[in-house]
């Protein structure tokens, strides 16, 4: 086999996406790390350069002495950051748990539907993913607002006297996240359930297991991989979510994505925002690596 030319061609094929990602993904992350170690100044761009890579090795060592951990110290000193990390993790975990409780029965109901309908139904469940995220979140404002459609309907029906205060609370953020990410959770669970052999359930039934027992000792354990995939696919981006807490949350739902956004666009403290991003990455690195391992072992998104 003509190995040599193939190898050279292969290198060319690989280098285009590789160089692109190195320049637009890996290098920028390194920059974030670098700027998180610089001092905030009132200027354009609003940070004091830490070190110049072109100035040589001696200058590099010199510059290393002047590295500033101010941004990280600020992070630790500022209770806003600490609380927003906790809020973000809590809201993302709660939303993911609720989404699984909603998505699992839905995926199961679709899998157990007539074969002719299955493709259509799973398509219908995933279709909202293709529509604008921003618009779907926006739709919930009109529903949850104090004078919104939900309160309007409940008060007309006489179920409540006073409007419910859901909008601009953590509950609204959780509803928004569950709603927006639901297709991400339904699809992997559906894929896992669909692969299961009916014979396994029949065997369990033949051996005297009731429907509940069959579910908990056959169906559920065999679909665990789908549940984990869906949970990771939702939890990781949800922790850093900006749009949903910004539009549906109130001042008590300061999630980290929002704090970073404010630091960046409003306070113009780039080192603080960068340090916030680095810490967020450090928190998420374990689930991200877990996600990658699963994906590269051949699971489909």
């Amino acid at each position: 086999m003509p190995r040599r030319p193939l190898a050279r061609g292969a290198r060319a094929v690989l280098s285009a996406p590789y160089l692109w990602l190195a320049f637009f993904f890996i290098a920028p992350l390194a920059l974030v790390a670098k700027i998180s170690l610089s001092k905030s100044v009132v200027a354009q761009p609003p940070y004091a350069p830490t070190f110049d890579l072109y100035a040589g090795f001696g200058a590099l060592i010199e510059a290393a002495r002047t590295l500033s951990f101010d941004a990280y110290r600020g992070l630790v000193a500022d209770p806003l950051y600490f609380e927003s990390y906790l809020t973000s993790l809590g809201v993302a975990a709660l939303s993911t748990a609720i989404a699984i409780l909603v998505a699992y029965p839905l995926a199961l109901a679709i899998v157990r539907s007539d074969r002719r309908w299955r493709g259509f139904l799973i398509g219908l469940a995933v279709a909202p993913f293709w529509t604008s995220f921003l618009i779907r979140v926006y739709a919930w404002i009109a529903i949850l607002k104090e004078e919104g459609l939900l309160n309007h309907a409940l008060m007309t029906l006489g179920l409540i006297r006073e409007p419910l205060e859901i909008f601009a609370t953590t509950m609204a953020v959780v509803i928004g996240i569950v709603y927006s990410y639901l297709p991400f959770v339904v699809l992997p669970i559906y894929n896992a359930l669909e692969k299961q052999d009916v014979a396994l359930r029949e065997a369990a039934a033949d051996l005297g297991a009731g429907p509940l027992r069959t579910f908990f000792s056959v169906t559920l354990p065999l679909s665990a991989s789908g549940v984990v995939a869906g949970a990771l696919l939702m939890f990781i981006p949800a922790v850093g979510e900006f749009v949903i807490p910004d539009l549906l949350g109130g001042s008590d739902t300061m999630m980290i994505g929002r704090v970073m956004w404010n630091d960046f666009f409003e306070n113009r403290d780039w080192p603080a925002a960068s340090a916030g991003a680095i810490v967020l990455l450090a928190i998420l690195v374990v689930p991200i690596v877990w996600f990658e391992r699963r994906q590269t072992r051949g699971g489909a998104v």
Partner: peptide, 20 residues
């Protein structure tokens, strides 16, 4: 580098690209 951006919070990607 292929799989991380699929789940990485957009705020981090946006911030890093702007700094670049």
């Amino acid at each position: 580098a292929i799989y991380a951006p699929l789940v990485m919070p957009e705020v981090i990607l946006g911030l890093s690209l702007l700094l670049l």
